[in-house]
Design a protein around this nucleic acid. Structure first.
Length: 286
DNA sequence: ACCACTACCTGAAGGC
DNA sequence: TGCCTTCAGGTAGTGG
């Protein structure tokens, strides 16, 4: 599901619902997601949620004892807030608020009102982790710069591309290169920059690198403004879908006409490193 | 160090 | 209706 724009959209939606809240209880519905739940989750009761930040595709819940709860959403992870208490599992039938894929339920109180912060993840590729601080979270070490921050520059992309034989598509998907891109936005950015996804990263010209950095920034900013992209099941913290999928130029458009003015090419689907790549061979040539 | 491939898990969609 | 195959927003681990 979620690349940087979707995670950022979820973060923004959750902030106004949970920041300032006090955790009352933590319930896990099964022993593990992709990785086992960390021990001591129930020990979070009594702490306040001071802030909610994002780094790359991770949500960072900052707690009042300075610890952080990290959340990676994998392919299908989602957070939502239920205002009313959930129905007990014994109450079945229509209108039930339970879901077999609700794996983590954090009860909290905010402004005198009780609510639940719920993590749902059908495929369970996501996970949560606890760390003494964000700086000490191993998951965040080694991540490349934020694509919308100052650390992501043509110079940076050029320096990590030197000598690389791997296709530029694969290098951009590597979170050590730049943190937060996924399959959709890499395809879209390469199309905007007019660069073939198969080009070895080390053969990018300085001009191409400059176009690519600008394209990555632009597509992510536009996607955030649109609330992310909903392919099948992604929704934000309030249950609303994104709508950037209507702006895709290549992703999911195999066999359709290239949208670049003056280009008469057809979008192709190929497989790189086991993942679908969508591009126009006619205008993505360098 | 680099690169490609596989596994992890569930569900939706399409073909027959 | 149902069975089977393919595909899906990610990434950690393995082996060449």
């Amino acid at each position: 599901m979620p690349e940087l724009p979707e995670v950022e959209t979820i973060r923004r939606g959750l902030v106004s619902l949970i920041v300032g809240g006090r955790i009352l209880s933590v319930e896990t519905r099964r022993a593990d997601l992709r990785f086992p739940f960390p021990p001591g989750l129930d020990g979070l009761a009594g702490l306040w949620i001071d802030r909610l930040d994002r780094r790359a595709k991770y949500l960072i819940f900052r707690l009042s004892d300075k610890r952080v709860l990290l959340s990676h959403l994998g392919m299908t992870g989602a957070w939502r807030v239920d205002r009313a208490p959930r129905a007990e599992p014994t109450r079945l039938g229509k209108g039930k608020r339970t879901d077999v894929h609700d794996h983590l339920i954090i009860g909290f109180e905010r402004g005198g009102q009780k609510a639940q912060l719920i993590y749902n993840d059908p495929r369970r590729f996501g996970y949560v982790a606890l760390a003494a601080s964000a700086a000490e979270a191993p998951q965040l070490l080694g991540l490349g710069p934020e694509p919308l921050g100052n650390g992501f520059s043509p110079d940076h992309l050029a320096s990590v591309s030197v000598g690389r034989a791997a296709p530029v598509k694969s290098v951009l998907l590597d979170q050590k290169t730049v943190a937060g891109l996924g399959n959709i936005y890499v395809c879209e950015a390469l199309w905007r920059a007019g660069i073939a996804p198969t080009l070895p990263a080390g053969r990018l010209s300085d001009m191409a690198i400059a176009r690519l950095v600008a394209a990555i920034r632009a597509v992510l900013q536009e996607a955030i403004a649109a609330g992310g992209s909903t392919l099948r099941d992604y929704v934000d913290a309030t249950g609303a879908p994104g709508y950037f999928q209507h702006s895709f130029d290549v992703y999911g458009r195999a066999g359709q006409a290239c949208r670049r003015p003056g280009c008469s090419g057809t979008v192709q689907r190929i497989v790189q490193s086991g993942r679908s790549t969508f591009y126009c061979p006619d205008c993505q040539s360098k």
